[in-house]
Design a protein around this nucleic acid. Structure first.
Lengths: 115, 115
DNA sequence: CAAATATATAACTATATAATAATATAATAC
DNA sequence: GTATTATATTATTATATAGTTATATATTTG
């Protein structure tokens, strides 16, 4: 009946968990346009140095980023093409929800004006 | 430069967070085949009553499920079509990763047999 | 080698939340 | 009404982790 084992589902859950932090999404968005080093990421995202470093480690270990040291600085690049497909799907869904909500609001307004 | 505001990203992060728990994914999978009541969900997932109830509340408030009381029991149904598209994308990605890993393993094996 | 800069790590605190046990609420049957 | 069953809620505990500060490591320059 329950085809998919909790073990497999926990892998999927882990993947989603990595995308469930605003700071990490900020970092990923900052890298959408291409490779950046840590200082650049810090500047764009306004996150602290240690914090960015820790998130970059998490994202890299999850196979979403690739680490490329160049001289004294380290560049990171997105290597998981799935990320933005996922974000786009979620965005579409959120937009849909907002539209539904506003439609309901309009109905309420219409009802109010009749009473 | 950083087009998308942290406010919007936090909405996206929240959505992912809901999908980042194995138990909730188990519940969603149990509902993939159609509407079920709480007892049925408990049986399929082997999760505790209070636990299931709480997760169902979270999923419903997020707009992923719809709650339908029928007599003494309450049925839940998936109303967010995005969920399984997201899971499928993640599964494909995880499979891809495993294939890459196993290819690397093969290379290591080949190297080992030559030395 | 010493100084400067960039990044990583360790230790810590605060917060969020999953799971559980106990209790409350709601609906039906008698 | 009372009893029974199904679900929800509350309180509690345990755990995970985000953010921060301080420190360590590594690379380049002089």
């Amino acid at each position: 009946m329950n085809q998919i084992s909790p073990q497999v589902l926990s892998r999927v859950a882990e993947y989603f968990k990595i995308l469930s932090e605003t700071s990490r999404l900020q970092i990923l968005c900052s890298l959408k346009s291409g490779s950046k080093n840590v200082s650049e990421i810090m500047e764009v995202t306004n996150l602290g140095q240690a914090n960015v470093s820790k998130h970059l480690r998490v994202l890299t270990q999850a196979g979403m980023l690739e680490r490329q040291p160049k001289g004294v600085s380290v560049f990171y690049e997105i290597v998981d093409p799935t990320i933005f497909e996922l974000c786009d799907l979620v965005c579409d869904r959120l937009i849909g929800q907002l539209q539904t909500d506003s439609a309901k609001l309009e109905q309420l307004k219409a009802f109010h004006s009749k009473t």
